[in-house]
């Protein structure tokens, strides 16, 4: 009872909190929702040769009558040509493979850092973050130098005598995976590390006191406790990886068809901003839909 005594004039509890929470919402509103509405609006128009290059949705005639023309044909159009479906699927596949491989490589890395001596953790984390100090483009170009027919790997293998003809490891699906796993690995390692580092190690001691072998202890204690880290890391990798444009363009071959390539074609080669916007909106719906379902089930589980 005593705890509920409140002085007159003091702010209600929760009011300050409400403002703090409002921050991210305002951010979300300005940098996601407003641009999304603009893009969605363009997707309901048709292309025109003008500045900007689409027909305005709202037009006024001489009698001050406002008419709104909404054109839904673009959404139907995406289904009529297999190009878009194939591009979506191959982008989803690229992102899924990237998430999986970064998880397999990133988990041991995060685990080793989290279990290293505290004085070593800082420098080790620094090594993970360090590549960010170099431009992303330069790092992708470096992979061209490493993978090309007379590049580092091929020259080394030829010098060793392991191969006589350069391996075909650039401008194909393999090099796209290499580049994407490389670029997104830190986004997997960091959330996994922060999750594993917070883990209560006395639980593992208890397990070993009770006779569990290290593998058993890992499977039944460490792994379940790190699931939030795995989910966070996978989402951080998967979502940007779906829309990745630069890596498939630079490291992929001519047959690499991704949603980024399709967007470029619609926007630049066909100058069809409405169809380009439709592709973008469809991508967001495809990505956000499953995420919201996931969120829904998770919050149900928590209850």
């Amino acid at each position: 009872m005593i705890g509920q005594v409140r002085f007159l004039g003091a702010p209600k509890p929760g009011e300050g909190r409400r403002w703090v929470i409002a921050g991210p919402f305002i951010w979300f509103l300005i940098f996601f929702l407003v641009p999304f509405v603009v893009v969605a609006k363009i997707s309901l128009s048709t292309a025109a040769v003008s500045i900007p290059p689409y027909v305005p949705l709202i037009s006024w005639d001489d009698t001050a009558t406002m008419s709104i023309a909404l054109h839904f044909g673009n959404y139907h159009f995406l289904l009529t040509d297999p190009e878009y479906v194939i591009a979506y699927l191959s982008s989803l596949r690229n992102a899924a493979v990237t998430s999986l491989v970064t998880l397999v490589i990133g988990y041991p890395v995060a685990y080793l850092i989290a279990t290293a001596k505290p004085s070593m953790r800082g420098p080790l984390l620094m090594l993970v973050i360090m590549p960010f100090w170099t431009s992303f483009l330069i790092r992708v170009y470096a992979w061209i130098g490493i993978l090309k027919p007379n590049g580092l790997i091929n020259n080394f293998l030829i010098w060793l005598g392991a191969i006589s003809h350069p391996l075909d490891i650039l401008n194909n699906q393999f090099s796209v995976y290499v580049g994407m796993v490389y670029a997104y690995l830190p986004f997997m390692v960091l959330p996994l590390y922060s999750c594993l580092e917070k883990m209560d190690h006395s639980l593992l001691e208890a397990a070993s006191d009770l006779g569990a072998k290290p593998l058993r202890a890992f499977v039944s204690i460490t792994l379940p406790l790190s699931i939030p880290g795995i989910i966070a890391g996978s989402l951080l990798v998967f979502i940007p990886a779906v829309g990745e444009y630069i890596i498939p363009t630079l490291l992929g071959g001519a047959d690499t068809l991704t949603i980024g390539t399709v967007l470029w074609n619609e926007f630049f080669a066909n100058r069809d901003w409405p169809v380009a916007s439709t592709v973008a909106v469809a991508l967001i719906i495809l990505l956000v839909g499953p995420l919201m379902l996931l969120q829904h089930f998770q919050s149900k589980e928590d209850q």
Binding site: E83, A254, N270
Partner: peptide, 11 residues
């Protein structure tokens, strides 16, 4: 553009 994409990607 569509034919060209098909030439390049096979799709």
């Amino acid at each position: 553009t569509r034919y060209w994409t098909r030439v390049k990607t096979g799709h």
